[in-house]
Design a protein around this nucleic acid. Structure first.
Length: 188
DNA sequence: ACGCTGATGCTCT
DNA sequence: GAGCATCAGCGTC
């Protein structure tokens, strides 16, 4: 039966896939969480995307087929994870920004993409792995009504700050408050 | 309550 | 060598 879940819906553009991931379940080992906040990143035409500068060793996974995990290192100490979207050969990904741990009485929040990865134990070793077979798996949920989804600009970008490709479940405690791009540290 | 800053290392130029 | 899809801690109001 559900040996290999159908993730073909991920083959659509990232900004269409993103809201469909809200409410989905992401598992790694014994930890599972329900996604509450995501952001869409497109290909070389999106100035906010890692793929903006074209295909590089790091972004290789983003250009591959949908349904794989794209992990990257940022700010020296953090890992963030994306779900690759779009057809093979076109870059696209949805950044997983926040979730709520399930099978946990406290409903422990995992707020922020780096904290989400730390909660699930996702590292660079999981980069490029298949979300159908694991070790990290994605189980889609029934689409949530559009009225339950809020949108806004993506967090922490210096470019394309006007593109409202951040999606979250309205009122979720695990969703972080919006933070514009960090002003570049004044050099001296 | 909110805003600014440093820490830390991988990635691309 | 510069920049970064971040976070936590400290300062100020």
């Amino acid at each position: 039966m559900a040996g290999s879940p159908d993730l073909s819906v991920l083959e659509r553009p990232a900004h269409e896939v993103a809201p469909l991931l809200l409410g989905a379940t992401l598992r790694h080992g014994d930890v599972a969480l329900r996604l509450t906040e995501v952001e869409a990143y497109a290909g070389p035409l999106d100035p906010g995307s890692h793929a903006y500068r074209g295909r590089t060793p790091r972004t290789e996974v983003m250009f591959g087929p949908a349904g794989f995990l794209y992990c990257y290192f940022v700010y020296g100490m953090h890992v963030c994870a994306n779900v690759v979207t779009g057809p093979d050969g076109e870059a696209g990904a949805v950044l997983l920004r926040a979730g709520e741990v399930i099978d946990d009485d406290a409903g422990h929040p995992a707020s922020g993409p780096a904290r989400l990865c730390r909660t699930l134990g996702i590292t660079l070793e999981e980069n490029g792995t298949d979300l159908r077979s694991g070790p990290v798996t994605l189980e889609l949920a029934d689409p949530v009504p559009a009225s339950a989804v809020s949108t806004g600009p993506r967090v922490g970008l210096r470019a394309a700050a006007d593109t409202p490709w951040r999606f979250w479940l309205t009122g979720e405690a695990s969703v972080s408050t919006y933070r514009p791009a960090a002003p570049r540290r004044t050099r001296r």
